[in-house]
Each structure stands twice: as C-alpha cells, then as structure tokens.
Design a protein around this nucleic acid. Structure first.
Lengths: 233, 233
DNA sequence: AACCGTTTGTGACCACGTGAACAAGCGTGA
DNA sequence: TCACGCTTGTTCACGTGGTCACAAACGGTT
C-alpha cells in the first residue's frame, strides 16, 4: 500500500469519529458555504445553511458539531472560518490526482468535464485496454494502456481511480488499481465489485437509479407514498 | 416547511411497505438474477445471491420476503419466477420513456449510452436551452428546445426526467419538468434542487462522491478506519 | 452591569436498518 | 412412510441515524 501523497494534516489530538451519513452531507454544506462566500456573506446560521442544503437545521448543527465548536451562539457560523475547517477535514487543502480507466462515452465525458480539476481533483491519467484508443488525446491528456497502470500510478501519485469500463472489465480493473496502490475507487460500471477492506469504494449506477425511480413511479398509481429526495448515500 | 402528507392512505388492499434501503438493493438482485438466468441457472439460494450482490444472506432473505414468500425452503428461489415478481414490483414490465435535459458532455454521453433503452428506459426526448444545439441529432433523437417541454412530455408520455444541465439552470429545469407532469427526476447537476412532495427525486453528484472519498483518503493517514463499500442509497 | 433576544451545541428519545439465530417447511433417500 | 439435511422466513437484540427540545452562551441595548 504505497501512499505517495501523505496528508499534510498534523497528528492532532484524538479525532472524533464522524458518522458516515454526516460525511456524505459535508460536501453539500461546503458547496453552499462557497456560494455564500462568493456572494459576500460573512456569517451564516444553521437554519439558512439547512435551507440551502435541503436538510433540517438541527441536523446541520449536529453535523457541524462533529467538526468542532466553530459557531458563535446568538450569531451563527463565520463562513470563511467554517469553510477552512471543513475543507481541512475533507482533505481538500491538497489536490488528489485522479485516473480514469475506460474511455467510452462516459469515460470521455468525465474526462472532458472540467468541474473536477477546478475542485481539487485533477484528471492526470487516462487508461484503456483498447489499443486503438491508446495514444489519442482527451482533454489534453494522452490515453495510455492499462498495462502501464503501476507505472502511471507511481508517476503521478494517484490515490483515486474512476472505473468507467463495461461491467465485464470492472472487477479486473479494480484489482489492477488496488495492485497499483490506489486506495479510493469510484465505480461507474453497472456491476458489483469487491475490494480489500482498506480500500474505499463508492459506486454510481445509473440503471439502478432509474429502477428505483421506476419503483416509486409504479407505486404512485396504487399507493400515495412517494418519498421524494434521496441521498447519494 | 413541507408537511408530510399523512391522510390519504385509502384504496387497494394495504400493500406492505418496502423499506427504502430494500428498494435500493432490489435492482442489484435483479441484475444478478438476470446473469444467472442467462447462464442457465434455474434455482438460486439466498447465500449465493448475497455473494453476487455483495451483501449479507440474511439481508437478502429479509429483502425478498417483502415481496412475498417466493422461495422454497430447502431449495432456494426459482430464478425465473423471482425475476418476474421482482420486475413486476419494480415496475419494469413496462417501458418508462425518459427525457434528458441538457446536452453538454454528460448529457450527450448519457444519450449515447445504450444501456438505458435496453433495460426499459428508452430515451425518447432531448432538450436544451441553447438554440445552437437545438435541431442537432444525438443517438438518433433530435434535440428540441426546452420551451417545448410540455408538448414533448405529453406527446411521449414522459414520466422520468434527467437533468444534466449546469448547476445554475437545474432548479428552473426541475420546475419546468414538474409543471410538464414529470413525476420522477434524476439530477446530475451539482446543486440541491427542491421538488413537490409527490415528485420523486434522486441525485448523482460526482463532486460529492469524490469529496467523500477524499475524506476517508485523508483520514487513512491518521486513523486506520476506512469503511469501504458505500451504497448509492 | 444586568437584561433580552437569538442561535448554538447537546442530551434524550424514537424510528429504521442490520446481523445473528432459530423454528418451520420442503425434498430426498432409505 | 419416516427421518434427515438443507434453506427459507421471521423474530429479536443492537447499533446508527434523525428529530425534538432546551440549557448555555453570545452580542446588543438600556
């Protein structure tokens, strides 16, 4: 497990364990805070932040309290200070170089989407198994063959890999990523993949999302129980 | 804010309410069942299905029991019969026509991805606000202007809408979709949008996924507690 | 300095989902 | 026919997360 990029966060005292559900919401708060900062807002209340993030105010306060007591009673939270603390906690004070494996429709779209590099996740490497794609350039990055993955990973200090291959190739790619030292994987392939415990895995499955919508859509005709809003959990 | 609609629970015999977490897993079971069916398997145990779906066997049995008692003790589940029941429950015995709004990188990639139509979610309409894109053809479908949304929705009987616009346009598009009668929305725009209670909303936020991975990646240097595997729940 | 309205931080309670354990039930073979 | 092994369906205990409510504490005002 070579971890080329060590987090700059100092040892610090015993960190409190943040619930997974809270971690999933922090990026939403972060985004709203950024927007407020750009709008010149310097202080924000939990109620306003809750409204922007689409959650309940008590939940916001509890979530933020896991980071520490960064608010001021009777006033609210200092936007800039909270942004700093939250960015630090999320590990966003540094860049995390990303590799995308698989350059079909989705992979290319992801590579061309500029929103990643802007937010601290530069796409520094692209891989594919198809030799007719290798050598071409996408969004300024030359596609390399997946057999070079170990060298590529070491070269760029890649810690996050995105799988955008067909389902049949996904598990093999995941194994290769892990072998190359990648310890965080985002899987877009429509299949279940397994990784060692020490590797973080998240998945985005478009077909599953549509089928979930289908379920409630179909129920809507029979029972009036449509739970709107669903997390990215 | 939004009051939970309680009163109306009238007609039809009370269908058992399937937990949201279970609904999110049904598509995974469905996929594994399809693969087994294609491989000629006629019967499957909860343990095998659990392995394929990456969950625990007890959870599989409990999830399936919400659909009814479709298994045979000592034997397992009949693949074909379970497939049928599950498809029916998920509303997959019919097609759900889908409209994609926003044809940037992501929208085009989604439109070109053939995996939707195959699985009962045909992309029948494409919309964009940019008049230079309107009129072009993507994956055999002509892009129309978003102002035509009401007519388009009625024409094709669209019930599911996919938002693939920039963040600033997302809420407006969502409002238009709802006004046009669309009652299920899948949002890819990196922003929180709100819809009426009777509309189902799910979101896929790539930046959020990466930031969640970043959190655990950053922690890995300080605390050895990386909860791998995370649902799209 | 003391009071007052406001907002945070947190403790208590409740609902939901998870995992293990087990009885019920089915098929098989003697 | 009966006993035995196997797998389901369900019950129970537990942990996590969500909501409510309220005391603590801060700035501003008198």
């Amino acid at each position: 497990m070579s971890s080329p990029a060590q987090p700059p966060t100092p040892p610090a005292r015993a960190r409190r364990k943040i619930p997974e559900a809270t971690v999933a919401r922090l990026p939403l708060y972060l985004r709203s805070l950024h927007e407020n900062q750009h709008a010149g807002v310097t202080t924000i209340s939990s109620e306003r932040l809750a409204e922007l993030a689409g959650v309940n105010a008590a939940k916001v306060r509890k979530d933020l309290s896991y980071l520490g007591s960064y608010g001021t009673r009777g006033v609210g939270y200092d936007v800039e200070y909270l942004l700093f603390q939250m960015s630090r906690e999320l590990g966003l004070t540094q860049d995390w170089p990303v590799a995308i494996v698989g350059l079909g429709n989705l992979g290319q779209a992801l590579a061309n989407y500029g929103g990643f590099g802007d937010r601290g996740f530069p796409i520094v490497a692209l891989c594919d198994a198809d030799r007719s794609v290798v050598g071409t350039e996408v969004h300024g990055v030359v596609v390399r063959h997946i057999d070079d993955l170990p060298a590529i990973a070491e070269e760029h200090g890649i810690s996050i890999g995105i799988i955008a291959t067909p389902a049949v190739a996904a598990q093999d790619v995941a194994d290769r990523l892990v072998a190359a030292g990648v310890s965080s994987i985002l899987n877009f392939a429509p299949t279940v993949i397994t990784v060692p415990n020490e590797v973080s895995l998240r998945k985005v499955d478009l077909a599953v999302e549509l089928q979930i919508l289908s379920f409630y859509q179909q129920r809507r005709g029979t029972a009036p129980l449509p739970p709107s809003v669903a997390g990215a959990d």
